[in-house]
């Protein structure tokens, strides 16, 4: 089997939310390809392609479908982990990313999905969890030498607290640290992120990856 064929099979099983069969096919092929090749060309590729959008820009895949893909990917990565550890010495890890849900927001579904996607694409992810004060995002980014804060919110009222991240960055004169946000309120008000003084806003996984690659 070629790697493209493995990708197609894994993608189809993931799309059908066949949890056990998806993991089985990774298990059965872990000795046929390098773990990094499976990670990048099969798992990351699947995650990047599972989320599609309609002509208005709305996601036309349900949250459950995306979560299912993320869970399958996360457990597939666990299968690869011992092999990756052996191979990783020769590879370069991409930049560190700080992620979390803003203060008073407890809806971590989007963040969990994003975490798996970023890891599968080679980023070092520091997940601060739910209900995170703006100061903690900034302090952690500075301590870890990270230049990206990715912050999520599902509730409108909690989303308003995201502007405090910019205030904290200003206090510390750290223009070099960029902030990207996502979550339900931004789907319903495309200008909201500007009010919150955030650099980028998107709920599209491919767009997130593309912004991180370019900047």
């Amino acid at each position: 089997m070629e790697i493209d064929e493995l990708y197609q099979k894994f993608f189809n099983l993931t799309k059908m939310r066949e949890y056990k069969s998806s993991l089985e096919i990774i298990n059965n092929n872990v000795n046929n390809f390098s773990a990094q090749e499976i990670l990048v060309k099969v798992i990351a590729q699947t995650l990047n392609n599972i989320q599609t959008f309609d002509e208005k820009g709305y996601q036309n895949v349900s949250a459950f479908q995306v979560l299912a893909a993320a869970k399958i990917a996360s457990d597939a990565i666990k299968i690869l982990e011992p092999f990756l550890k052996k191979e990783i010495k020769n590879s370069i890890q991409k930049k560190k990313i700080i992620i979390g849900n803003i203060f008073q927001d407890y809806h971590g579904l989007g963040k969990e999905i994003l975490k798996v996607v970023l890891q599968a694409n080679g980023y070092q992810v520091i997940d601060l969890g739910l209900n995170v004060p703006a100061s903690k995002f900034v302090e952690t980014a500075i301590k870890e030498g990270a230049h990206w804060i990715l912050v999520s919110a599902m509730m409108y009222n909690s989303a308003l607290g995201i502007k405090n991240i910019r205030n904290e960055l200003k206090k510390r004169i750290r223009k070099d640290i960029k902030v990207m946000c996502g979550g339900a309120p931004f789907n319903y008000n495309s200008k909201l992120y500007k009010k919150l003084k955030v650099d980028y806003m998107t709920n599209n996984i491919n767009e997130i990856l593309s912004i991180l690659e370019k900047k």
Binding site: Y19, L67, K71, Y106, G108, L109
Partner: peptide, 12 residues
Amino acid sequence: FTLSKWLESLLI
């Protein structure tokens, strides 16, 4: 359980 865990149970 949180939304992630609840939906994960529907999958697994």
